[in-house]
Design a protein around this nucleic acid. Structure first.
Length: 937
RNA sequence: GCUCGAGUGGUGGAAUUGGUAGACACGUUGGACUUAAAAUCCAAUGGCCAUUGCGGCCGUGCGGGUUCAAGUCCCGCCUCGAGUACCA
């Protein structure tokens, strides 16, 4: 019986499925281990070889931990709400749920064929009402909460109301909208119910407000900041413009500080933590309130350099700043409105494209300097962003390059406040080793001292205070889409009212069309049954809306990240119908021990999910403030695209070696039409696409050689390699081991099938240790010392390498082990069995089969992992040269398995030791096997 | 621009705390078995010199430094990749 992987893999996949081998119990005395993959969005294209990379790695860890006696939770599911299914629905009229189900089935089939040890009884789908019911429940919890700055946590809104009734909101220190009115307890009691609700909306963690949003006309929806890359939409690459809309937002900004601090204790990669830190973008400085010359309003700015206050020569407002309208003088009215007109016509991309050109206009108004009382002209400038800080800056040309450029461009004055520094060529932006001048009470101080002093002064004059500012913006939560979670809210006039928990899930209604309505409402505006009957507590027809007992439901849906922000908790108790997660399940599983996934989610999913977890923690629904202790980012597997070269304007294609000096354009061809010597199958190309029908291929040395380039795997680049084909040719175990062998798990790497035969040969070679010339040859004989040594070296290396997730070196270790055992013709059962256990996380089907062939009846999965015995790898006593600080002194006969202390002892006993060494204690003894002992003194 | 990471044979990569650089695999070359092929096995494979022998010298992007010892640590460059981008 040869290594028939096809038969074997099918057999064991069936076995695992029918025996539910990988079902995890919530009631167990064993220690728990939770290994999680980022669940996939089931796209129509299916999985390519890049997707399983992380799944294979996490599966190895899951299986390894089972061998160690852990009760392992290793679940999988689908992030099944999303844009592609919806766009397919728009084109074909097919309900997105149908497309989604089809795709999920295909994904499941592909996942199964790779032999993953998932507990499928815990599968979740974010588009399943049993699941999104709890997503909606969390939304309502957020709606019912506010962030109390004094307690530094979220609290129920009922607590806030109590305080308003007692003391109004003067002393309430909470995150809220910037236009929140102030009132005392008496005023609060005079407000009617609607007014109270309007005020509470300023405080809620999920709130409705009129905000500048990123509107993508092509997708017909709003996008969050992390969904925009280089000024265009992440999906589809469509342009994005700014627009004011009334939208649901999530007050993630309230958690900025905790999200930042929480990173410190996480075992995540430094680069990923750095990305999150940058995204949160904490700046420490001061808020300064400038009085206006002619109005009672104050102009608030944020600055990281309050010490440069005496260098302020003008102010700049963002074109969208609220004060612009008020303060612009009649003379400047025309110029200002023309300027704003011109700016608002630009898309984000255009704005980004020309950051170098300096634009701006004078408002005609003046502010007063808080210390000198001098008049400071107020300008509008495009370089000031409305979305950062207060949307206004105090301009210090001497200390900021942009202010400097702006001042020069518009001939505004520049005051040099740095002693002995030449600023004729540019601003001085360094913070160290400089003293201030022309700065009254700050003269002669360095930056740090001046900052402290000026803040004290500002506070004493109540025209400023020390302040911290974050780049992180509140997250827009509304999407004008069909295929997402409905927001469980109905409207009494302007006032949003949440559904109660017992009315959830609020199921997605049926619609005829998935496009926005003709009057520009989101797709849910097409639904006929989409109104809430308050009396009968049910969804009813929109025709019944009377705004007395039947009210319209919210038409927006939730964004893609809603469902993925808490799914890791749901896996702990996936089938619970009464709670989001049962408390005993939470108590047992606690948090994710290892989370595996791509770093592309650094500023999206991985930030939002931490935010929700912290919120749920605040309200006591979970006792873990961070849900993923350790996170590993698997690298991306890139495609190795193939190109043919067409002579411009012809149907002639030149082989790669012939293109020099020719005017050619490279065209992608399907990588499956090229062999691994880069030779193109010309006949196949002609059949592949009509365009190549009449093409003429110019060969070199009788062959057409393609060009190669490493790119992201994508359908449109014809460089996608499908795992199904690999499984068919080499088997899943080979694929698993090969993907691990390609390189370090965290590294990006191009897919290249060339080396796969090495791994496949390894499995065949291992098989031959058991089976040769038509018979099984494993014997129950005592192992020889040499084989035992190899076994124990292997155990040591594999254990260490799995622990540090170095799977590529594991594969090498197995290869060395089997090569050596083959040389020794080792066929001892007591050697081969432990090796099978070591290997089984990598090649599970293969190992199960041989395990069974050795006469075992139970699955190999829960066999205890072999234990390393150092006595089995003992070196013989040999003659070793001994050197001190690199200089050879004498030779010594000893065994290297002696401890360092014992070697020390022997060395010190030596008579030949030189005077300088006598009595000295060696700092370090370096033993290089077979070569030398070096003693550092 | 700023922040972070990386640079090792023809290729992917190994070297865990500063201690035999290039493990393992691919590829290439030669050989065995075979009528032949496939499959399998063996040998060589960083560069230069010597190759009748031992061997010798150089070598981890570049230039310095610390150390008995540097791919690894320090300083200064170069190149590539990622994140971010008028962040006040």
């Amino acid at each position: 019986m040869n290594y028939d992987f096809w038969e074997i893999e099918k057999k064991w996949q069936d076995y695992w499925a029918t025996h539910k081998t990988f079902r995890a119990s919530n009631l167990s005395d064993q220690p728990k281990y939770y290994v999680l993959d980022m669940f996939p969005y089931p796209s129509g294209a299916g999985l390519h070889v890049g997707h399983p990379l992380g799944y294979i790695a996490s599966d190895i860890v899951a299986r390894y931990k089972r061998h160690l006696g852990f009760n392992v939770l290793h679940p999988q599911g689908y992030d099944s709400f999303g844009l592609p299914a919806e766009q397919y629905a728009i084109q074909t009229g097919q309900h997105p749920s149908k497309t989604t189900t089809t795709n999920i089935n295909r994904y499941r089939q592909q996942l199964d064929q790779m032999g993953f040890s998932f507990d499928w009884d815990r599968e979740v789908r974010t588009s399943n009402p049993d699941y999104y019911r709890w997503t909606q429940w969390i939304f309502i919890k957020l709606f019912d909460a506010y962030y109390d700055i004094d307690e530094d946590k979220a609290l129920p809104v009922s607590k806030l109301i109590e305080r308003f009734e007692k003391e109004g909101n003067f002393s309430v220190n909470a995150h809220c909208g910037k236009d929140t009115p102030l009132f005392d307890s008496n005023q609060w009691s005079t407000f009617d119910a609607d007014e109270k609700q309007r005020i509470l909306l300023f405080y809620r963690l999920t709130y409705l407000s009129e905000t500048q949003v990123n509107w993508c006309p092509a997708l017909g929806t709003v996008l969050a900041n992390d969904e925009i890359v280089n000024g265009v939409s992440e999906r589809g690459g469509h342009p994005v413009i700014k627009k004011k809309m009334r939208q649901w937002s999530m007050r993630i900004g309230a958690y900025a500080n905790r999200l930042l601090k929480g990173l410190e204790d996480l075992d995540w990669s430094d680069s990923l933590k750095e990305i999150q830190r940058n995204w949160i973008g904490k700046s420490v400085g001061a808020s300064i309130y400038f009085k206006l010359e002619k109005y009672p309003e104050k102009l608030e700015v944020f600055t990281t350099r309050p010490d440069t206050i005496f260098g302020v020569t003008y102010m700049t407002l963002a074109p969208e700043h609220d004060l612009v309208k008020l303060i612009t003088t009649n003379e400047q009215q025309k110029a200002v409105s023309e300027y704003i007109e011109q700016i608002s016509g630009k898309s984000d991309r255009e704005r980004q494209a020309d950051v170098k050109s300096i634009t701006g206009v004078f408002t005609g108004a003046y502010a007063l300097h808080p210390f000198t009382g001098n008049l400071i002209p107020i300008w509008i400038g495009e370089y000031v962003l409305s979305s950062y800080g207060t949307g206004a800056v105090m301009a210090v040309p001497a200390g900021d390059q942009r202010d400097f450029d702006f001042a020069n461009h518009f001939k505004l004055p520049i005051i040099n406040i740095f002693e002995g520094i030449d600023i004729s060529e540019g601003a001085f932006t360094e913070k160290g080793n400089v003293k201030l001048t022309r700065s009254e009470f700050l003269n002669g101080l360095d930056v740090k001292t001046a900052v402290e002093k000026v803040i004290v002064e500002l506070e004493s004059k109540s025209c400023g205070k020390g302040a911290v500012n974050f780049r992180l913006r509140d997250a827009i939560f509304s999407r004008q889409r069909y295929w997402g979670e409905p927001i469980p809210i109905y409207f009494k006039g302007e006032i949003p009212v949440p559904l109660r928990q017992e009315h959830l899930p609020l199921k997605l209604p049926e619609v005829e069309k998935y496009l926005p309505t003709e009057d520009g409402k989101p797709p849910l505006g097409n639904a006929k049954e989409w109104a809430w009957d308050e009396m009968n507590e049910q969804v009813v027809s929109i025709d019944l809306i009377d705004n007395k007992s039947v009210f319209p439901l919210e038409l927006n849906t939730m964004p893609g990240w809603a469902g993925s922000s808490w799914y890791f908790n749901r896996y702990m108790d996936a089938n619970n119908e009464n709670e989001w997660v049962g408390s005993s399940a939470l108590e047992y599983w606690k948090e994710v021990d290892l989370y595996m996934g791509g770093s592309e989610h650094a500023t999206g999913h991985l930030l939002y999910s931490r935010f929700w977890q912290k919120f749920l923690f605040d309200l006591g629904y979970t006792n873990k403030e961070e849900y993923a202790k350790k996170l590993v980012n698997q690298g991306m597997i890139l495609g190795n695209s193939a190109f043919v070269y067409r002579k411009k304007g012809t149907q002639t294609f030149l082989s790669k070696g012939l293109i020099k000096g020719e005017d050619v354009e490279p065209i992608h061809v399907d990588v499956s039409l090229v062999n691994h010597h880069d030779e193109l199958d010309v006949a196949a190309v002609k059949k592949w696409q009509k365009d190549f029908d009449q093409a003429e291929f110019v060969l070199e040395k009788g062959k057409y050689i393609v060009g190669r380039e490493v790119e992201k795997m994508s359908k449109s680049k014809y460089n996608v390699v499908n795992p199904d084909a690999i499984c068919e040719t080499y088997g899943a175990d080979t694929l698993r081991m090969y993907e691990m062998f390609l390189g370090p798990i965290e590294q990006d790497k191009p897919w290249n099938t060339a080396g796969i035969s090495g791994v496949h040969n390894f499995l065949k070679k291992f098989w031959r240790l058991f089976y040769q010339q038509g018979q099984w040859i494993v014997k129950h004989e005592d192992p020889d010392a040499e084989s035992l040594k190899i076994l124990h070296q292997t155990i040591k290396k594999i254990t260490d390498d799995i622990e540090r997730l170095s799977f590529n070196t594991c594969v090498s270790t197995f290869m060395i082990c089997i090569n050596e055992l083959t040389t020794l013709k080792c066929s001892s059962k007591s050697i081969l069995e432990p090796i099978l256990i070591l290997l089984s996380p990598f090649a599970p089907h293969f190992c199960e089969e041989l395990w069974q062939q050795l006469g075992n009846t139970k699955s190999i999965e829960f066999e205890p992992f072999p234990i390393f015995d150092p006595t089995k790898v003992t070196e013989e006593t040999k003659e070793y040269p001994v050197s001190f600080n690199g200089k050879m002194r004498f030779t010594l006969k000893l065994s290297l398995d002696l401890g360092v202390e014992q070697i020390k002892e022997l060395v010190m006993q030596e008579q030949r030791t030189l005077d300088q060494i006598k009595g000295a204690t060696p700092k370090k003894i370096i033993v290089v096997p077979g070569k030398i002992i070096n003693i550092v003194i």
